[in-house]
Design a protein around this nucleic acid. Structure first.
Lengths: 349, 349
DNA sequence: GTTAGCACTCAACATCGCCGAGTGCTAATC
DNA sequence: GATTAGCACTCGGCGATGTTGAGTGCTAAC
């Protein structure tokens, strides 16, 4: 393990590099950070740190730059200490901002990404709640007019989906109720694909007049169930990547941006580490995908009834302000959890 | 008006500049385009065209670059000729791609933006249908369990909204139906804000036991109505801006990107020209907002039951491939109109 | 073990000259 | 009178060259 002084030198370098993005020399550190030793000593320490893989040089006579390994050490050692103070005032401010603008769950997630990006000046990511294998709690058919029926589906999580369904013939209300009852019997507590053909046939027999209607209804129910399970992904503040001096190389930033804009790929990344703890940090080379090799990603989870259902995150250069961002992410994650658990408004997605 | 030959010279320059992004000299044109005159003649014509404001030079001895005025002329004269062939095969391909991935209206719009950006390699914009002053057609309260009620709202356009509503006390089903009936009586064919306090008080009297519930219900109804009227805006392929050589200046592209990512501003732009024809083109300096002064925007509308309800668009450098993009936008606009008019699946937003 | 001192390295920046694409003008030609 | 060939001139782009300064690594003294 690194001794006390090496630690302090390394932290000083990381601290300086995070705020300036410039390679740091021994003299700069000895002046700006009060370590009580001369630049020459620091120079020796830096040489050791480089040998240990914590620092890199861009060329023989340049200052040093922290390596991914250094950031990893930095983050790991501070994340324990950081049980402290989340800023209560800031938290309630953010919460009320989120609540103010969000009429629906979708909007909440979208606004979280926007606000997170605004506050941090980094690119923000947000994942909508992920519901696996929805079980149907409740089905209802309601007549809108003679040839339109409103289908309503409620799942076990209280999510509601609806679809308007056009019929070829008018179905009287009592028949509709009968079909509704039948559907409920068949579907309740089942995921859609558990519905077997047996009971379908049975339905056709009982409501032979509406065979066509029922046949067309089933795929619509299926679609609705599927879209309950769909995950939406929002990325906000992509353009902010251009503010970082490390991304002044247009080709580099282009590849990162197109990665972020490719929802499928990005989803992969975010769902990959789903086993992990509340805060997950992936630094530089730790990322599997090439375009992200000089980015870091921090993600935090949010919960519905104690269970992790979604994520928010931040993406930026490895030289990111980890401590500050972790704090803000925690605030957002807590707030989102609180809001979705108390939702008494629309829980529609 | 410009004479025939000047026209042909100008088009040649525009054509060349659109594909190369390089200033064009007289010699290049005389070789690449068969105008039957020497470079010296073209040089004279170019000099005239510059004087007339159709061409610009980047410096004294450089080639010429088309001005906004030139693009305007170019677009205006071709847009009339361009009643021709939209590619039937391409159209059905795009349509089925859109239909395949879109379970809901929201998704359709989002996918349109994504696909449009993919196909064109430009940044694409899409606006969800805009519904003004929704009138309520139908209200229904359904019990989910003892303390949760599902509120369903259908508006005149067939849009459906729902919200789950927690009650303090259990409300028996027949009472819920009575309240539903009452709400329908009061709200049908009214926009929410037309509801006056008189009829509210009336309701309180009739259902005094549920005074609190009803009081809390009203703002939820209101929120739902509001969110029916909300417009969503999607921008896809923002990173593609970096592919254009004119945006190699990082500061320029940064300001454009942050403009595009600011939904409110962008919405302003897109709603501004809403009086206009199906295809609207805004070239360079014609844009009001400074960051867009060297961009062009093409928008196309899509319709629901014959009425314009939304837009899709493309944004890029003034040197954009107008003719090709207009064709593709028309295809998308037709397809979206067709799909939303035939929606028999979920019309939920 | 720490520090002062010094030679050495190298990116960044400015300067200079050359090259070539392109213009504008003039005089010859159709 | 319109078109064209010819030529002097302009100017951005590019590579070569030199200078500067921040920073290192090593050695010798404390």
């Amino acid at each position: 393990m690194l001794d006390e002084r090496k630690m302090r030198v390394l932290y000083a370098i990381i601290d300086s590099y995070i705020s300036t993005a410039e390679p740091i020399g021994s003299r700069t550190i000895s002046k700006a950070y009060d370590l009580g030793v001369s630049s020459a000593t620091i120079r020796n320490e830096m040489s050791d740190l480089e040998e240990l893989g914590y620092l890199n040089k861009t060329h023989t006579s340049s200052g040093r730059v922290p390596s991914d390994k250094a950031y990893r050490l930095y983050v790991d050692s501070f994340i324990k200490l950081d049980k402290d103070s989340i800023n209560k005032k800031q938290k309630t401010e953010i919460k009320s901002a989120l609540e103010r603008e969000s009429k629906e769950l979708d909007q909440l997630i979208q606004n979280s990404a926007r606000l997170l990006s605004q506050i941090t000046s980094y690119t923000a990511l947000a994942l909508s709640p992920q519901i696996k294998e929805t079980r149907i709690k409740y089905v209802q058919l309601l007549p809108i007019d003679d040839y339109q029926v409103l289908l309503i589906l409620v799942n076990e999580n209280g999510l509601v989906k609806n679809a308007v369904f056009k019929t070829e013939q008018s179905i009287p209300e009592n028949q509709l109720m009968a079909i509704t009852n039948m559907l409920n019997e068949r579907l309740r507590n089942k995921s859609f694909n558990q519905l077997n053909n047996e009971s379908m046939k049975d339905m056709f027999n009982q409501f032979y007049r509406y065979k066509n209607e029922i046949e067309r209804l089933m795929p619509i129910i299926n679609k609705s169930v599927e879209s309950m399970e769909d995950i939406d992904l929002y990325a906000d503040g992509i353009g902010r990547l251009l503010n970082f001096p490390e991304y002044k190389d247009i080709d580099k930033v282009k590849s990162i941006m197109s990665f972020i804009e490719d929802k499928d790929q990005l989803l992969n990344i975010l769902l990959l580490d789903s086993i992990s703890r509340d805060i997950h940090i992936s630094i530089g080379q730790e990322n599997i995908y090439a375009p992200l090799k000089d980015c870091s990603i921090i993600t935090a989870t949010y919960k519905l009834e104690g269970e992790t259902v979604g994520k928010i995150g931040i993406i930026g250069p490895t030289r990111m302000d980890y401590l500050r961002l972790i704090k803000i992410l925690k605030i957002f994650s807590d707030n989102i959890s609180e809001i979705i658990n108390n939702y008494n408004g629309s829980v529609k997605r």
